[in-house]
């Protein structure tokens, strides 16, 4: 098992290396960063001297090697726009995104499990139907649509919640609700489906025959097995959680990594784009590694 995990870790590193290459080279197709950064009426000479100062005039592969070397030591260079190290900009934004993503993940997982279990245990009841409709809707509406709708209803119409910014608990409510809606729906559906399946398995029937309580059967036996598919998809969902956070952060003016990334792409702030994309790739690799471990732990039948 240790060997398996070591291999997975090595593969993760390889992925990061590949992502760095993709990101670095695709960015340099965008054109001349110096021309963007200088004011419209700058002379050609001014642009040229700026380009030289920033190292944009070196061959691309030299820039890449230098980038890799620096990235390994955490130096992504200074943001062209903020005149600060890209990494420190990123680090400043991480707590905000982490707060948003974890809040969304927490409520959606919690309620997803609760509603999924209820729906599975009361299969085909009116409650089940309601939960299924809600979860279908949750997966069907785009994050930004839900976010804008909530702003209209809760901020404009009723003045219950602030529409933007970060700092108070009230400001966290709408962004985390709209970001978590999809995961809540997805997890509800998954838990329901896999629990229904697990409840139909032989070992559950055996447990029932032994006269164990329904609660014990659900929690002790069925749920553990139902968890496996849920855990597996968590890793996949995580990447799109990052993507969803990106749009949520823009709508609610949430000062997180996603907004940093979009603004950096728009202004061609190369160093910051590289840092944020590599960061999200790193996060993805780590999360999937953890999912691998959880998977092994949950499913002792897998012998690796």
């Amino acid at each position: 098992m240790l060997r398996y995990l070591l291999i997975r870790a090595g593969q993760g590193l390889l992925v990061l290396f590949g992502v760095s290459a993709i990101v670095f080279f695709s960015l340099f197709l965008t054109g001349d960063p110096a021309a963007v950064m200088m004011p419209p009426d700058a002379t050609t000479a001014e642009i040229a001297s700026f380009r030289h100062a920033m190292g944009f005039d070196q061959p691309i592969w030299i820039q890449y090697l230098r980038f890799l070397g620096h990235a390994l030591t955490g130096h992504f260079g200074d943001s062209l726009r903020y005149q600060q190290p890209a990494l420190s900009l990123l680090l400043q934004r991480i707590p905000a995104t982490a707060l948003l993503a974890l809040t969304a993940l927490a409520w959606s997982s919690l309620f997803g499990f609760v509603f999924g279990i209820i729906a599975a245990l009361r299969q085909n009841s009116a409650l089940d139907l309601t939960i299924r409709v809600v979860s279908l809707l949750g997966q069907a509406v785009p994050v930004f649509w839900l976010g804008l709708l909530m702003i209209i209803v809760f901020s404009l119409r009723h003045h219950w919640l602030p529409s933007s910014g970060m700092g108070t608990a009230a400001q966290l409510v709408m962004p985390s609700l709209s970001l978590g809606a999809y995961y809540f729906a997805a997890i509800t559906r998954l838990v329901r489906a896999s629990l229904i399946e697990a409840l139909g398995q032989d070992y559950v029937r055996t447990a029932r025959a032994k006269g164990l309580s329904e609660w014990r059967i659900t929690v002790r036996h069925a749920l553990r097995n139902a968890l496996i598919p849920v855990v597996t998809v968590q890793g996949m969902y995580f990447a799109s959680l990052m993507g969803g956070a990106l749009i949520t952060e823009i709508i609610f003016a949430w000062p997180g990594v996603g907004r940093l990334a979009v603004e950096a792409i728009q202004t061609r702030d190369f160093t910051v784009v590289q840092a944020t994309v590599l960061f999200s790739a790193l996060l993805f690799v780590v999360v999937n590694f953890l999912v691998d471990i959880a998977y092994v732990w949950l499913n002792p039948r897998i012998r690796l």
């Binding site: 702003i151 529409s163 933007s164 910014g165 823009i250 709508i251 609610f252 003016a253 603004e263």
Partner: peptide, 14 residues
């Protein structure tokens, strides 16, 4: 900073 115009206007109205 509120880049989105709708959100910015909402912030004023709210």
């Amino acid at each position: 900073t509120i880049p989105d115009a709708t959100a910015r206007t909402t912030a004023l109205l709210n």
